[in-house]
């Protein structure tokens, strides 16, 4: 009884929030309703005894994908009223997809079997007492390992594509080399100079920007600066 009540609660919230995803005016609210949707779907998975799928749905879709959605919707300055005008144009396509899905749903309920022979194609029936984490692991990583690896490869290609499309190597960009920073020592950066009264910085040769070193890399502010040639100026040696 409790289970049935919980099922109806999850199902009702799921359907209502799904409707609100498409009808909410504020796009941020839409994404939040979508998250609520995922969450209730996870609840339904739990009730069906698929606890692994339920939690993976939450970790992957709610915890990562929807965060990115929310990011984009909050950050991008998209004119949503303009986007909304497209609804009329795309309505027929959406309606067709909806009808197809509804037909499939009705067929499932009506007990229509498209290919009855497929049911016998199971590689091995999964023993009743295996937990569903183990069962999924067996199917994915043992029986269908090649298909799994191939889909991973497709994702890898997509990822490399995304990086190639967005990576712009700016030659003038300031970069920080942590290794150079940590191996830098006092002697590389600090120069002890004895300054006589009345002597100017320009005479010492440590005037900034370093006029004595015209080839000094102006952009490399963080790396070790080459030791200033202070031979002609009054350096440490002179004072001794």
């Amino acid at each position: 009884m409790l289970i049935t009540a919980v099922f109806w609660i999850f199902a009702t919230i799921l359907v209502v929030s799904a409707a609100l995803v498409v009808s909410a005016r504020n796009p941020v609210h839409s994404v939040l309703f979508l998250i609520l949707c995922f969450f209730n779907a996870a609840g339904l998975f739990l009730l069906a005894g698929a606890e692994f799928l339920a939690l993976i749905l939450v970790v992957v879709y709610v915890g990562a994908v929807a965060v990115l959605f929310l990011f984009v919707v909050m950050m991008l300055d998209v004119n949503f009223t303009q986007l909304r005008e497209g609804v009329q144009r795309y309505a027929p396509v959406g309606a067709t997809i909806g009808v197809v899905l509804l037909a499939e749903l009705l067929m499932t309920f009506g007990g229509v079997r498209v290919a009855p022979s497929l049911a016998t194609l199971h590689v091995a029936p999964i023993a009743a007492q295996t937990s569903n984490t183990e069962a999924l692991g067996l199917v994915l990583y043992t029986h269908y390992v090649l298909a799994f690896q191939l889909s991973g490869l497709v994702l890898l290609v997509a990822m490399i594509g995304a990086i190639v499309l967005t990576l712009r190597d700016k030659p003038r960009a300031r970069r920080q080399s942590i290794a150079r920073q940590t191996t830098r020592e006092v002697g590389d950066t600090l120069l002890m100079v004895d300054v006589r009264p009345g002597q100017t910085m320009a005479e010492l040769g440590i005037f900034r920007p370093l006029t004595t070193l015209p080839q000094a890399p102006a952009l490399d502010l963080i790396g070790p600066t080459p030791p200033v040639s202070a031979d002609d100026a009054t350096g440490r040696g002179d004072a001794a």
């Binding site: 606890e51 692994f52 939690l55 993976i56 939450v58 970790v59 709610v62 915890g63 990562a64 937990s131 984490t133």
Partner: peptide, 14 residues
């Protein structure tokens, strides 16, 4: 529960 660690991971990602 069987998937306790996943539950914690899911909650912390929320």
């Amino acid at each position: 529960i069987n998937v306790g660690i996943l539950y914690l991971f899911a909650i912390s990602s929320l």
